[in-house]
Structures are given as structure tokens and as C-alpha cells.
């Protein structure tokens, strides 16, 4: 496959919150995201999959420069190969990059839906396009005259989706776009992302739902405790042995069709991150090297942050945990 153009490349992203510690006069730094890497090529859907509390939404906020003032951002974000600095992000957002936010509280409670979808434009072309999209997504015509509190949760999410589609962006960053929707509708939304990506655009799908992501995404970035542990092709999830990181393999085994195996322990809070690999304390293959610096390596076409990434054939024990 020919290397397609990278729409967005996030490399070594870190987000740190500066906070006042109630127990000490000094400020403490809370590293919520560290050394995160993910990229989206033209025609691609990349899903960032992680459990809640892993900092996924902050990734979206970092891309759109929406983090609060006490957040420090490090690393680089490239858009079409060009480094995105703050001013550039402000030019691009809403035009070439669009966000579908997680909560329906993103809709202004005192503004009618139609004006929010068109972002205030009233010309016929824009309104016509909105009505087309509304029909396509099963939103009744009168929704445009309604206020957000009059919409159901599923409708409000579709409205958020439409706000993104209206701006014809090159990249859509969708933060949990489907919860609250009926399954058929959620399927339609994901199918539309597919369709949208196939036209040469990119979609960064942020979700906790690995199964839904696997159904539509080309690549999966596994997100854990503020960083990406593995970037794998969606097809790598066909077999456990194709996966590289022990955590990804644990996720795979936790899927219903693979036996629902639950790994013990829980994701560490950013304040008590272990040295080295954040998954170390829960990892079945932990070794002393895991406490040191963990390099990102390319293995079998994917990338993994592990000192002893899983071999394709060596380890296949069905229940090692």
C-alpha cells in the first residue's frame, strides 16, 4: 500500500496540569498525558481506544487548543505536514478540523438548534444543506426550531454530528459520538465516518468501545493512563498473536467473543503512575526492565511501547493470567 498523506500527526504530546496542592504551599504538576503518539492518514479512521479516565477527551481538547490556562502542552502536532501552533489551530478549527464533542452540553441552551447547526449562517445554500443532512439522519424538520432541552439525547448527538459535517473538514475528531443512539443509528454514523474518510479525509475516533471501533476503524491506538501503548492495524485484532502489547492482548481477551477475561487491578491515577511502563504493575510479563525508560518500537508494521513486545507465534497461552 502506498503511503498516504498524513492529515494529522501527533508526536510526543504531553499535557500537564499545574495545580495547587492543598497540603503544600508548592504547585504540583499533574501529567495527564505523556508522550502520546498517533497519526491519521487521508482516507483513514483511527480509533483511540481507552477506558474512561485515561485522558482521551484531553487529547481532543489539546488538538483544538481548548485546554484551560493551567495546562501546559508539550510535543508537536502536525497538520498536513505543517506544525500547528496555537494561532494556526485557531485558524483551522471549525474550518478544516472539526470536533464532535462528547457531551450534549456543548449545545447552547438558549439558541435554536438550526442556528447552531449552520453556525449562524442563514443563506439558502447553507440552510438547504442542513435540511438535507437532517433528513439523512432522520431528524424531523421541526428540530431546527427547537431548543436543545427539547431534543432527546440521541437527537442532540446527531445535531453535534451535523455541526461537524456542515463545515466539510479534512479531519473530524469525534469524542464518543455514538452513546445514547440506537444501534442502527450508531451504525449509520460510523458508516458515514467510513464514507467520509473514503473521500480522502481523516477521522480520529475517540472511544471506549473497542468492538465498535474495530468495526469501522483502519487502525487502533490503544490508550492507557495518558499515553498510547500500541498502534495496530484493526486487522491485527483478528488474532491475539498479532497484537504486540500485553495490555492490548488483555483487552482482546476481555472481549465477549474471546472469553471476557478480566485483568486484575485498575488503571493508575495520574498522580500515582509507576516508574516506567504504566501497565507494569498489572502486566503478566513484567520484568525489571519495565521500570526503566520504555522505548517505542516498530513491530510488524505497528508501533508498541514495551520492552518485550509479544512475538507473533511464541506466546499464545490461552489463559496466562
Amino acid at each position: 500500500m502506498k503511503e498516504k498523506q498524513k492529515i494529522i500527526e501527533i508526536s510526543g504530546l504531553s499535557v500537564t496540569f499545574e495545580q495547587y496542592d492543598p497540603h503544600s504551599p508548592r504547585r504540583v504538576n499533574l501529567p495527564v498525558i505523556s508522550d502520546l503518539n498517533v497519526s491519521v492518514h487521508a482516507g483513514e479512521i483511527v480509533a483511540v481506544v481507552g477506558s474512561s479516565g485515561s485522558g482521551k477527551s484531553l487529547l481532543a481538547h489539546a488538538i483544538f487548543d481548548l485546554l484551560p490556562a493551567n495546562a501546559k502542552v508539550g510535543g508537536n502536532i502536525y497538520y498536513l505536514g505543517e506544525e500547528m501552533r496555537r494561532e494556526r489551530i485557531r485558524e483551522l478549527r471549525g474550518r478544516e478540523i472539526a470536533l464532535i464533542p462528547q457531551g450534549t452540553g456543548a449545545l447552547n441552551p438558549l439558541m435554536k438548534t438550526g442556528r447552531q447547526i449552520t453556525n449562524g449562517r442563514k443563506d439558502d445554500a447553507c440552510v438547504g444543506e442542513m435540511r438535507n443532512l437532517m433528513r439523512q439522519y432522520g431528524l424531523p424538520r421541526n428540530v431546527e426550531k427547537k431548543y436543545p432541552f427539547e431534543l432527546s439525547g440521541g437527537m442532540a448527538r446527531r445535531v453535534l454530528l451535523l455541526t461537524a459535517l456542515m463545515s466539510h473538514p479534512k479531519l473530524i475528531v469525534a469524542d464518543e459520538p455514538t452513546p445514547g443512539m440506537e444501534e442502527s443509528l450508531a451504525g449509520q454514523v460510523l458508516a458515514d465516518f467510513r464514507n467520509y474518510a473514503d473521500q480522502g479525509n481523516g477521522v480520529l475516533l475517540i472511544t471506549h468501545d473497542l468492538r465498535a471501533a474495530l468495526g469501522v476503524a483502519d487502525r487502533i491506538a490503544v490508550f492507557y493512563a495518558g499515553t498510547t501503548l500500541e498502534e495496530a492495524a484493526a486487522s491485527d485484532f483478528d488474532r491475539e498473536n498479532l497484537l504486540r502489547h500485553p495490555y492490548t492482548r488483555a483487552l482482546w481477551r476481555a472481549m465477549p467473543e474471546h472469553g471476557f477475561a478480566v485483568v486484575s487491578g485498575s488503571q493508575p491515577y495520574v498522580k500515582d503512575l509507576p516508574e516506567g511502563c504504566p501497565f507494569g504493575p498489572r502486566c503478566p510479563d513484567k520484568s525489571p526492565a519495565c521500570a526503566g525508560e520504555i522505548p517505542v518500537r516498530s513491530v510488524r508494521g505497528g508501533r508498541v511501547r514495551c520492552v518485550c513486545p509479544g512475538e507473533e507465534e511464541k506466546r499464545g497461552e490461552p489463559d496466562g493470567m
Binding site: H61, L99, A106, M111
Partner: peptide
């Protein structure tokens, strides 16, 4: 100004005075 809808307005490229007029004053 810290609400989700103002944050989203910023994500959609709306800026300072427009956010104040369209979102903040109304609310």
C-alpha cells in the same frame, strides 16, 4: 465562559466578541 457550549463554540472557530455576543450575553 467556561461552559461546554462556549468551549465548543471555540472549537468551531468562533472567537472573542462573537462568542460573547452569540453565547455569553444570551445566557
Amino acid at each position: 465562559m467556561e461552559s461546554d457550549y462556549v468551549l465548543f463554540a471555540r472549537a468551531r472557530g468562533e472567537r472573542g466578541s462573537r462568542i460573547v455576543r452569540r453565547h455569553a450575553l444570551r445566557n
